[in-house]
């Protein structure tokens, strides 16, 4: 394998990992508050369509990202209205939101652009080369000549870590995810914390969707989220609900998908789908506790206040 091939592989890893990282970091916040948002996929696809429409309307990739964030946030608000506000079952609600999101975005897309089959061309989110950093050999281009949304993911990982473990707000968030009764008794507003955490998660999933449309594909296509919402939930578990590890886990999942390019470049005749399975096997290993003590927030997926 030549150095050029390796660089290409690393570049693809980061490119494929970045949207996962954005969505997973947001979901980590949501899950730390005890809410599992299976509707993440719906928020990503809404973010992709919102990003496309916003970018077209304002002829700017940046505006597209904001529109995508808003769309993702709205989807999360719908989820939270039921799952947090009314205490409905989070898994069923999230599934409904995902299916609804996929269907609705498809309908809006067809109504707006017709089903002509010609690909939509969008103002893209251009890569920004960070001076000096991008000149590091081998990894410089891969890590530091990316779309701005990728840098958002880099910045969020330490910022969220600080928030979780070094602020009182983070303490309250974690308490809400572990033992909401205890948090409430201490005066924490459990449902408000859960609502805000879910909205933040949806907003970041929207950014991830916009990134897919604007930085990745340069177009919108129905179902283009392609299961990334569910993968992001696996990424959170592999990253053990700890933001820096979540970022690394996302890049690792990205690398597994990038293997297909590498294998093609190397001319190896191996079914790349086999390699796609590796991160999932690792996620199972992480959940089983084989990669060290890892425990989901104790109140994950538990409605509060408890029914009856």
């Amino acid at each position: 394998m030549s150095e050029a091939e390796l660089e290409l592989f690393l570049q693809a890893s980061v490119r494929l990992g970045a949207p996962l990282a954005l969505a997973a970091l947001g979901e980590a916040v949501t899950e730390r508050a005890g809410v599992i948002n299976i509707g993440l996929e719906g928020a990503i696809i809404a973010g992709a369509l919102g990003g496309a429409l916003g970018a077209l309307a304002f002829e700017s990739g940046g505006a597209g990202v904001l529109a995508g964030a808003l769309a993702g946030g709205i989807v999360a608000l719908v989820f939270a209205a039921f799952a947090v506000g009314l205490g409905t079952d989070q898994i069923i609600t999230g599934t409904a939101v995902t299916l609804g999101g996929l269907g609705l975005t498809g309908a809006v897309y067809q109504a707006r652009f017709g089903a002509t089959g010609t690909a939509l061309t969008l103002p893209t989110l251009a890569p920004v080369r960070l001076p000096l950093l991008a000149d590091i050999p081998l990894i410089g281009d891969a890590l530091f000549a990316q779309a701005p949304t990728t840098y958002l993911a880099y910045a969020l990982a330490p910022a969220l870590w600080y928030f979780f473990f070094r602020t009182e707000w983070g303490l309250e968030l974690r308490a809400v995810g572990e033992q909401p009764d205890a948090a409430a008794a201490a005066g924490v507003r459990v449902r408000r914390v859960r609502l805000l955490a879910t909205l933040l998660g949806g907003t970041l999933a929207g950014v991830a969707g916009a990134h897919l449309a604007l930085a990745h594909a340069g177009t919108f296509a129905e179902n283009m989220s392609a299961g990334r919402g569910f993968i992001a939930i696996a990424v959170v578990a592999l990253g053990r609900w700890n933001p820096p590890w979540v970022l690394l886990a996302a890049l690792f999942f990205g690398a597994a998908s990038a293997l297909q390019y590498l294998l093609q470049a190397l001319g190896l005749d191996l079914p790349y789908q086999l390699f796609l399975a590796i991160p999932y096997l690792l996620t199972l290993a992480a959940l089983a506790g084989w990669l060290g003590r890892a425990r989901a927030p104790a109140a994950l997926a538990t409605p509060w206040p408890p029914p009856r």
């Binding site: 303490l171 205890a182 948090a183 201490a186």
Partner: peptide, 28 residues
């Protein structure tokens, strides 16, 4: 409370800090 309202994975000190909002941005 009759039933414990402590968060098991947190330390005693962290449990004491829960909900206090003394310096929200500076848990330390």
């Amino acid at each position: 409370h009759q039933h414990f309202t402590l968060v098991p994975p947190l330390t005693v000190l962290e449990n004491l800090a829960l909900g206090r909002r003394l310096q929200p941005a500076r848990l330390g």
